[in-house]
Design a protein around this nucleic acid. Structure first.
Lengths: 168, 168
DNA sequence: ACTACATAGTGCGATATCGTATCAAATGGA
DNA sequence: TCCATTTGATACGATATCGCACTATGTAGT
């Protein structure tokens, strides 16, 4: 055999440690956010709301599922919650009869802005203790890693199928 | 009022973007892992198993809940699953009659090692596309951020109460 | 046009997550 | 010692997550 693995050993520990930290940080940020969200709304729902404001209105549920890398059924549920609360509106997709488009309502926009405002002191407290420059340095690494994992994702099953564009 | 905020504006966008990437990466790594886990085991359970191997055996459920920053009830559930599968053993805590100690079984150790082995090619594929040095640079930032968020956590309610030591 | 296949969304069931309430053991005063 | 408070763990219920299977629409090949 001539072309085995890169012959350079992979630092498994590094990767596991990273994923471990990421999992815990996700948990911490979730808790942080949900402490400021109105009753009945959880982080996934707020994430969608925020995405609609920051990126674009009128996208399809599947595009959202891809953006967040969750199964489409999970996104269906999140959107149903948001719609039940009157925060988004689902309209038929003129270009594709199977599809729908998700639009923010005024209430949705307002609630998102209010939540951001409510979160600001918490973030400020964090920023007070943690140098933003370090974060700014780490963020591109996270982004690139996310993109690569995106790409490597098995484009199989009912999960979501393919790569999802993220906030540009 | 004399001592308002640091008068320096906080880069909210930076923080939100970071938390956003972290949430998606957590999702991606979860999916990656669960694709290699035996049926019936999910990432949280494997995380516990891995922690017991890497850090220490014989810790209490509450210590585990703190380490992962999940509510104690979630940890109770995860441990029940692991115990049902014969992967861990719960013994009474000699030092505290209310408490228990979690121990790995041989099956648990074996399953953890097998899963690591099964994951290695996936990690290797990642490592092939992503420079480990960059990851190594970013990891301390994540760790420190996690520690700080740990510290700032409201030590309230039934969540977990306090800071949890993480893999040293 | 007709048939195959792919794709968008959803209903359903199994399981996970987590807040609240509860119980039992420990701790710390009076 | 007795009582109040704290702390570790769990039961329970509400909701979230997600895999599977299904429908409906779109797309391609003939």
């Amino acid at each position: 055999m001539t072309s085995g693995p890169p012959s350079e050993a992979v630092d498994l520990g590094l990767w596991f440690a990273t994923f471990n930290e990421i999992a815990i940080l996700a948990q911490l940020s979730r808790t942080l956010m949900e402490a400021r969200l109105p009753h009945g709304l959880l982080q996934p729902q707020f994430g969608v709301l925020n995405h609609l404001v920051r990126v674009a209105d009128g996208v399809t549920p599947l595009a959202l599922a891809r953006a967040f890398q969750v199964p489409k059924t999970s996104m269906t549920h999140s959107l149903a919650v948001l719609e039940r609360h009157g925060l988004v509106e689902m309209r038929p997709n003129a270009r594709d009869g199977r599809s729908k488009c998700v639009f923010l309502t005024d209430a949705g926009r307002k609630l998102r802005d209010g939540t951001i405002a409510a979160l600001t002191p918490d973030i400020a407290a964090l920023a007070h203790r943690f140098d933003a420059a370090r974060l700014r340095g780490a963020l591109p690494v996270l982004t690139e890693l996310r993109q690569i994992m995106d790409t490597l994702r098995d484009p199989v099953s009912g999960h979501t199928g393919a790569t999802g564009a993220q906030d540009p």
